[in-house]
Simulated assay, not measured.
Amino acid sequence: MEPRHIVMVGYDGAELLDIACVTSTFGLANAIGQLHPGYRVSLATPGGQPIRCDSGLVVQAQLTLERLTGPIDTLIVSGGFGHEVAADNALVVAHVRRLARESRRVASVCTGATVLAATGLLDGHRATTHWRFAPRLASRYRDVHVDSAPIFIREGRMATAAGVTSGLDLTLAFVEEDHGPELSRQVARDLVTYLQRPGNQAQMSVYVAPPAPDNDVVRRAVDHVLSHLDTDLSTARLADAVGVSPRHLTRLFLRELGDPPARFVRSARVDAAARLLDSTDLPMPEVATRTGFGSAEALRQAFVARFRMPPAKFRAVSRRPEPDRPDQDRAMAG
């Protein structure tokens, strides 16, 4: 059997970590699993030219994008600050579209989703990208159902990863699909990373706070929300707390955050509940109370809407246990 050919598509302004997280993970799977055949990993670029990454480092390509033909096992488009220039390049888009037809799986990392969206391959599909660029992707490609919450999304043979190191999580999922969970766990341990974060885990808001709004009124409103999650946070009450009218507050939130106050409040409550589920053993009713949901059922509905799983399942997958260690290791630890 021939090795599984993994093709990473890069371009000037690509993010080096987007490329390395994928290529290093497949390479380590080859070494640890002693796979024969294993993965053959290549970087394809326009004209086969070296590319200058966001960091300024120059990376040499192995393949010329325009001359490459299938079959390809997995085609993955890198993200990076050059993503919109690449998406506006008709030749790049045409060749990615052509190669996708000859690939078993097609994926993107971070803003590489912009290039996939330009090909039309994501039309009618859920897709994710880095949370900072999600609104731009959604406004530019109206037929793509952009979801900025998960770290990666898989729909059939199409996959999109949220950003940078989430490409590692998606690649681990590919390794598990190809060779089973044990090899995926071994690779993750050698990479000193999570054994594998589930795709539905939130990419940004559960563990990384968004930047503070520039507008003073919105910043004070956000601070009030985050410190009073278990109180009445209706738009009228929130506007009163910061001394403006509900209409003006809504206008400011839409301009600064892209969401009305009520939607921001609901998202903040879900994020806080997710942190509690991940870090405590509090029962569901207590989590609901502390985060301002009226009941455990209201909490469940919010989680299903946001993460497409109930809170109990979210807690289970976010606390996925490590695989058993040898008995002597357990004895030493105990």
Rank of each mutant, 00 (worst) to 15 (best):
G243N: 04
A221N: 02
L238T: 07
V242K: 06
P246A: 07
A239R: 00
D214Y: 01
D223G: 13
F253C: 15
A241H: 03
D214M: 07
L226K: 06
L254A: 03
V225P: 01
A221Y: 07
D232C: 06
Q201C: 07
R247T: 15
R251E: 14
V208Q: 08
V217H: 02
F253P: 02
R247D: 14
P213I: 08
P210N: 08
H248C: 06
M204D: 05
P213A: 10
D214E: 12
T231V: 01
S205P: 01
L238Q: 03
P198A: 14
H224G: 01
Y207S: 11
S227R: 11
L254G: 00
P211A: 10
L229A: 03
V244A: 04
V225S: 05
R255W: 06
V225T: 11
D232G: 10
D230V: 03
V222F: 09
D223Q: 09
S205I: 07
S227N: 10
A209R: 13
V242G: 00
N215K: 09
L254R: 11
P210V: 08
Y207A: 15
T235Q: 13
Q196A: 09
D230Y: 01
R219P: 04
G199S: 08
T235N: 14
V225Y: 02
L238Y: 00
T231A: 08
A221P: 04
Q196N: 14
G243Y: 00
L254K: 11
D216H: 04
V218D: 02
L226C: 09
D223K: 07
V222P: 01
N215L: 11
S245Y: 01
R219A: 15
T231K: 02
P246S: 08
T231F: 00
R255M: 06
V244I: 13
V218T: 10
T231W: 01
T235M: 01
R237E: 15
Q196E: 12
V225D: 09
V242H: 06
F253R: 01
S245R: 02
D223Y: 02
L252W: 02
T235P: 01
P198G: 08
D232F: 00
R251I: 10
P213V: 09
D223P: 00
H224K: 04
Q203M: 14
S227W: 01
Q203L: 13
D240E: 15
N215I: 05
A202E: 14
D232Y: 05
A241V: 05
A212Y: 10
N200H: 13
D216R: 10
Q201T: 07
S234M: 05
R219C: 03
D240Q: 15
A209S: 12
G199K: 08
A202N: 14
R237K: 14
R237P: 00
Q203V: 15
T235F: 04
D216T: 13
S245W: 03
S234T: 15
V225G: 03
L249S: 03
L229M: 04
Q196C: 13
H224M: 03
A209D: 14
L252I: 09
